[in-house]
Design a protein around this nucleic acid. Sequence first.
DNA 1: CATATGATGGACT
DNA 2: GTCCATCATATGG
Length: 193
Amino acid sequence: MRLKPLPRSFYARDTSLVAKELLGKLLVHKTPQGIVAGKIVETEAYYGERDPASRAFHGKKIYNIGMWGEPGTVFTYIVHANWMFNIATGEKGEPSAVLIRALEPLEGIALMQKRRGLAKIEELCRGPGKLSRAMGITKAHNGLPLAPRTGLYLAEPPREEKFAIGSSHRIGVTQDLKRKLRFFIKDSTFVSR
DNA sequence: CATATGATGGACT
DNA sequence: GTCCATCATATGG
């Protein structure tokens, strides 16, 4: 499979637009243990300092510095013993990000199953913590640029696909539930609840 | 050093 | 729907 990585300019736009257009794209992670890849089926947009639900809301910290990085920079953050996989968006210096919430596993499924200790394919990446586990994403990736040379990157799917996009309020946040900043592929069975 | 806190997950009613 | 294990950080003594 020949993959075309997303250009940096893709990420340097409005966060919710990036979140929406990320649906259907491929997330690829090459590691010494093997290659794993999946299709993005669910995302959430987080605006920086203006967004009370954002990690950047309380200012620049060591752990969230990645949010201020170049667009296309990985930002990982732990919640309840689970790593969240985010991508910095917008202009450099603007701490907005997109959280990847769910994937449809495509490649390296055996490795995902091994890392998750689980056989059911629908469950492997259905949720932000699950997908990081299955993909092998941790703190070590915080601050890395998304690029083939780092082993972790996003790419265009081999074929264009048409699908309906649904939206809702964001999951798990207690602030700002009004805005619909969660996007997902409507008919996908791999979206989290 | 001690304790609180989640952008969660999984088990259970 | 509810309960709670889990653990890297943040924060206060």
